[in-house]
């Protein structure tokens, strides 16, 4: 009510900017939270760290499946990886041109998401290798046993540590885990920076559609 009966002028040139579906939104904020907690707060190797890692793996797998069967805005087909388009998009931003609207991610955003997914899979899968696939429940139980003075849990773990922990292969896996995790944090920060820049350039707040506001 109270709006003028306007002729609808459409600066986007007919392209409807995306309204993210609830699965994309919820999975995003859960993954973002887990990345921050695991990257900055909790203790690597602890049951919580491993548990969050498992949860992230499950969520990312669902999101990747959703990329094939979800609504148009969530489909990979709507944001194919296009490195050159991504570069020209960034170039346009640098030259302070107003970017065009895309029905899903803009080309630079698309490259970022694919990279983030690849890193999330790398971090979680190397994490699985490092823990010998032991579940968070097992880790919690072992930790509780050790805490109560039963050191046999450590002995049980020992062979696994031998193949994975101290060998060269284990070290490499650990190094990949750490490097990918750090890269993930840096790129996430860059990604938030990208959201700010693109929001300014487009003149609309890109956080809102990620919170489920805006017109459906």
């Amino acid at each position: 009510m109270g709006r003028a009966p306007s002729l609808k002028t459409d600066p986007a040139g007919g392209v409807k900017p995306p309204v993210w579906d609830p699965l994309v939104r919820l999975s995003h904020w859960l993954v973002a939270l887990a990345v921050l907690v695991n990257g900055l707060i909790d203790k690597p190797g602890a049951a919580l760290h491993v548990g969050l890692g498992w949860a992230v793996l499950a969520i990312v797998l669902v999101r990747l499946g959703w990329g094939f069967v979800g609504p148009a805005t969530a489909r990979f087909a709507s944001f194919p990886p296009a490195p050159f388009k991504a570069l020209s998009h960034l170039g346009g931003l640098a030259r302070r041109q107003r970017p065009r609207e895309y029905p899903s991610h803009n080309p630079a955003g698309a490259m970022m998401v694919y990279t983030l997914w690849a890193l999330l899979l790398t971090v979680t899968l190397t994490g699985l290798v490092m823990t010998g696939g032991r579940s968070p429940m097992t880790i919690a139980a072992d930790q509780a046993a050790v805490n109560s003075g039963d050191w046999s849990a450590l002995v049980k773990q020992a062979p696994a540590e031998d193949d994975e922990g101290d060998s060269d292969g284990g070290k490499i896996v650990g190094a990949i885990h750490e490097t990918a995790a750090n890269l993930l944090l840096i790129l996430a920060a860059l990604h938030v920076g990208g959201v700010v820049v693109e929001s300014r350039a487009l003149g609309r707040n890109l956080v809102r559609p990620m919170l489920g506001r805006g017109k459906a």
Binding site: L26, A58, R134, T138
Partner: peptide
């Protein structure tokens, strides 16, 4: 309804992975 369904899908997925990991162990 769709927000609730999305939450269900994700909870189910996490639960499934934990359960299968435990079963594999």
């Amino acid at each position: 309804q769709s927000a609730a369904l999305a939450a269900v899908v994700l909870v189910q997925a996490v639960a499934a992975l934990f359960f299968m990991g435990d079963a594999a162990a």
